[in-house]
């Protein structure tokens, strides 16, 4: 027993400084700027002027540059954001969006069946709670409680990155590569070429996105979209669903049945008057170098897409020419 007490005493001497150090990094990590704090600033700084609000997942975040759309646009789409959070974000800010004329929601191949709470990046829900005070879609599971990211920003960022951020904020990047209107400015993704191996890896990416298609979420997502469309119609705000372009290495491997079901359902909301659906999934105006990865546009590719989208919105008289 004496040996055990000796060990526990020594372990305490080791553990206490470690806990102090972790707490120190945790406090500092929570003070660092991240993608969510920036998004919050983006919308709250301009809220009363916003005419066009862009929501959706990373496809919208990467592809739609508000600077090109003009009309006081702001991009609130973000990595892994599902329709549930799109809706809650809008609900949170709708009363202050006094000049809102149009909402663009980027809907992806998997969106109608996707729930962030069941995806591998579900830790993002803690940020929605922390910064936007938005509740998670369902109650926490055992895996939530055993996931260190539930409790610690320092471990989520990695302590090394937190330390770097403390020394020099420019060295820390946690989804912070965005412009002042919330559009992604990270262009470091892999350069895609047309080799067989690159194209084959498109299959892996599709297989990953296919794991996000969970059938049981369909009804609730459709219900969210239905209520969303109804509210906007009642308040004379246009709603535009946009499916952004993907590389041919991605398009080649998609599940055609899911795609058809998705486009039919997304299209069924469109009435050509208040709700529109614009599908650029197979758009051939984009080449491999326009992509950040298999299904996200970057830099010049995103700017080209934003110009195309701008023209389309003007042609459909959703927005006025500027």
């Amino acid at each position: 027993m004496q040996g055990q007490i000796k060990l526990y005493k020594k372990l305490l001497i080791i553990i206490i400084p470690v806990i102090v150090l972790i707490l120190f990094f945790e406090v500092r990590a929570r003070g660092l700027e991240n993608g969510f704090t920036l998004k919050k600033k983006v919308i709250e700084n301009k809220i009363s002027d916003i005419n066009i609000l862009i929501l959706g997942s990373s496809h919208g975040y990467f592809s739609i540059n508000p600077d090109i759309l003009n009309h006081n646009s702001v991009n609130l789409a973000y990595y892994s954001q599902d329709l549930y959070y799109d809706n809650l974000l809008f609900e949170k800010y709708k009363n202050n969006l006094k000049n809102l004329k149009c909402i663009i929601v980027s809907v992806s191949y998997f969106s109608l069946w996707y729930d962030l709470n069941e995806a591998h990046e579900k830790w993002r829900k803690y940020f929605y709670k922390e910064y936007f005070n938005l509740p998670a879609r369902s109650s926490y599971s055992l895996s939530d409680y055993t996931d260190i990211k539930t409790y610690s920003f320092a471990f989520l960022y990695r302590i090394e990155n937190t330390l770097l951020g403390m020394i020099n904020p420019k060295m820390f990047s946690f989804g912070t590569k965005m412009n002042s209107l919330g559009w992604n400015t990270d262009t470091t993704g892999n350069v895609l070429d047309s080799t067989e191996a690159t194209i084959l890896r498109g299959k892996e990416r599709v297989e990953f996105t296919n794991t996000l298609v969970i059938r049981k979420n369909f009804e609730s997502n459709i219900s969210i979209l239905g209520n969303f469309a109804k509210y906007l119609k009642e308040n004379n705000i246009k709603l535009v669903f946009v499916t952004t372009p993907v590389s041919f290495a991605y398009a080649k491997y998609i599940d055609k049945n899911i795609y058809i079901e998705f486009t039919e359902k997304a299209g069924s909301f469109a009435d050509g008057k208040d709700v529109f659906y614009l599908n650029y999934f197979y758009d051939k105006r984009f080449c491999m170098t326009d992509y950040y990865d298999y299904d996200h546009l970057k830099g010049s590719g995103a700017n080209l897409f934003s110009r195309i989208l701008k023209d389309t919105l003007e042609n459909l008289k959703i927005t006025d020419k500027q």
Partner: peptide, 16 residues
């Protein structure tokens, strides 16, 4: 040594 390695693990470790 103990503290050095524990801190190295803590700071440079990939816990995810």
């Amino acid at each position: 040594f103990y503290y050095f390695f524990i801190f190295i693990i803590l700071i440079f470790g990939r816990f995810d």
